[in-house]
Amino acid sequence: MSDWDTDLLGDGITYDDIKAATERAAGHIRPVTVAPVAPGTFRTASGEPYEVWFALEYMQYTGSFKARGAQNFIQAHREAGTLPDAGVTIASGGNAGLACAWAAQQQGVRATVFLPSVAPAVKVAKLREFGADVRLVGAEYAEALEACEEFAASSGALAAHAYDHPLIAAGAGTLLEEVHARIPGLDTVVVSVGGGGLFAGVATAARHHGIRTVAVEPENSRSLNAAIEAGRPVDVPVDSVAVDSLGARRATALALHAVRENDVHSVLVPDAEIVRARQALWDRRRVAVEHAAATALAALTAPDPAYRPGAGERIAVVLCGANTDPGDLVRPAAGS
C-alpha cells in the first residue's frame, strides 16, 4: 500500500468518499437494474406483506460488483499521479482479478494478475481476453499473493486488493447510491459479506440515507460476525458452499468501523438455505447467481428467517455476482 493509500485509510470511509467514487464511476460502469418481487410474495410470521426488490448487480461488467471498486481504485490513482508505468497487480482466485484486469484495460493500464495454478481455465482465458499478464504460482491463494507482493516490490507496480482498501470499498458503495435513487422510500438493504469491502461501502452510503443494512454471512464463514463479538478483527475458520467468494478468514477494519458507525444487523445463514435460495432464484426467475449472492436472499427465505422484516418494510436484496457454473442448477425434466 502506498503512503497515499495509507493516508486514505484513516478510521474508515465516509460518504464523501462514496460521492467521489460515484463521480469517477459515471460512464464507466453499468448502472444497476432493480426489479420488484410480486406483491404478497414475502410476508411476516403474522402474515403481513413486506416489499422486496432485487438489485441485479450480477449483470455488472465482469459479472460482479467488483468492477466498481476496481474502476475507482485505478482512476483515483491516475488523478493523484500515483499510477506507475508498471501498472497494477493483484492476486486473486476470481472476481477481483477479473475486475482489476477489466478496469485496467478500460483505462489503458497494464495489469499483472497472479493466480494459484489450480485456477479454472475459463477464468485464466477471460483474464487474458482483458489483456492481463496472467501468472500462475503455487497451489494456494497465499502463494499467489506472496508472488504478487514480490512483483510489486521489484517492478514498482501498484498493488490492488480484492476488498481491503478504502478506494475499493468506496467504489462498492456506489451501488447503494444507485439503489437508493431507484427505490424511493427504501428502508433496508440486505447484502452478503465476505471480507467486507462491499458491506463497508454499502453500509456507509446507507447510513447517509437513513437506510438499515443487514449483513449476511454463512454460519461457518463468519468473519464480520466474529469481529463484532470480539470487538476487533479476528481469524475464523471458513467452511461453506459460498467459500469461493465469502471465504475471508478475517474481516477488514473498514468493515468493523462501518458496523460501529451504522445501523447494521449481522445475521448468519446455514449452507442448506443458501443452496435452497440459489436454486429458487433459478427455478422461479431463471436467475443464475453465485452462492455468495444467494446468501443475502437466504436471510429472508429460510423457514426460520435470520432477519425478520416488519410489515410494509421496503427491502432491497443485493444479488452481487454471476461468476458461477450453472450446471448444478438445471434439473432434469420429469420422465427424462
Rank of each mutant, 00 (worst) to 15 (best):
P84L: 12
A99D: 09
G171H: 00
A86I: 04
V122I: 13
A132M: 13
K126Y: 03
A162P: 07
R110H: 10
L158H: 10
G131K: 00
A147W: 11
G94D: 14
H161C: 03
A160T: 14
A96Y: 02
D133M: 04
L98I: 06
H161W: 12
A103F: 09
L136T: 10
R128G: 04
C100H: 05
G156E: 09
A96I: 12
A96V: 05
A121I: 11
A142M: 09
V137F: 12
V88D: 04
A169L: 03
A103M: 03
A142E: 10
K123W: 13
D85Y: 09
T112V: 10
L167C: 13
A104D: 07
P84R: 10
E143Y: 02
G156Y: 11
N95C: 03
A103H: 10
V134H: 09
G94R: 01
A172P: 01
L98W: 00
A160H: 05
L127V: 04
V109I: 12
A96P: 10
F130T: 01
E143G: 02
A142Y: 03
I90L: 06
G138R: 04
D164G: 07
A139W: 01
F151L: 12
A111D: 08
A139L: 06
L98N: 01
G173P: 00
A159S: 13
L158Y: 14
A119M: 15
S117R: 14
Q106T: 07
Y163H: 08
T174W: 07
A142R: 12
A152H: 01
G131V: 00
A91T: 03
A99W: 01
R128W: 01
Y141I: 08
D85H: 09
Y141G: 04
P116L: 01
P116V: 08
E150Q: 11
